[in-house]
């Protein structure tokens, strides 16, 4: 049964909350139950941002992600904060341009992507978050890439759609082909 509890975390301004929103919209379009819960407390004032997104075909109980199936981090403090929250066998996606160490745990899957470098090559450094989101969706298959792109087209700014699309595809290509 499709079910993902994802934490997106990084600095304010990296598009952390948007990543979560696009995934939630995509989940809704894929007929899943979804919830999106942002951090709005003191951590936000400190410049870090995170949100928890749940997509599942079952009823959503608590919107608070307490045991994540996937975590996407775009700074080092977030890796330190959320690594322990991943369930065993969970997926950690790291922007390796911004986080200078890998995960310490050995019971999780780690995908490191130099998202800043790749986004710059695509012509817009702001699209780094979409590269990571593309990788997440490709690896977890929680929704299809087509549905994700549709949700970005429907709910994102039209002027950024082409670069976001290329970023999503770039991220998806970075995911190693693994047996499930």
């Amino acid at each position: 049964m499709p079910s993902q509890e994802v934490v997106f975390a990084g600095f304010g301004g990296q598009g952390i909350l948007s990543m979560g929103k696009f995934l939630a919209y995509a989940g809704m379009e894929a007929n899943l139950n979804v919830s999106w819960l942002p951090s709005y407390g003191p951590e936000m004032r400190g410049g870090t941002a995170n949100c928890g997104v749940i997509l599942t075909d079952e009823a959503i109980g608590s919107p608070v992600v307490t045991r994540a199936t996937s975590v996407v981090v775009m700074n080092r403090p977030s890796l330190e904060k959320f690594e322990h929250m991943l369930e065993s066998g969970g997926l950690m996606i790291i922007d390796s341009d911004l986080v200078n160490r890998s995960a310490e745990r050995t019971d999780i899957e780690v995908i490191r992507i130099p998202a800043q470098t790749l986004a710059e090559r695509l012509g817009n450094k702001k699209a780094a978050n979409m590269i990571l989101l593309g990788a997440l969706v490709k690896r977890t298959e929680i929704v299809s890439l087509e549905v994700l792109l549709r949700s970005i087209q429907a709910h994102g700014k039209a002027e950024f759609f082409q670069v976001n699309k290329r970023a999503i595809e770039e991220g998806a290509q970075r995911v190693p082909l693994l047996a499930h």
Partner: peptide
């Protein structure tokens, strides 16, 4: 939380 979360 109910105020800040997004749901369909």
């Amino acid at each position: 939380m109910l105020g800040q979360m997004m749901e369909p």
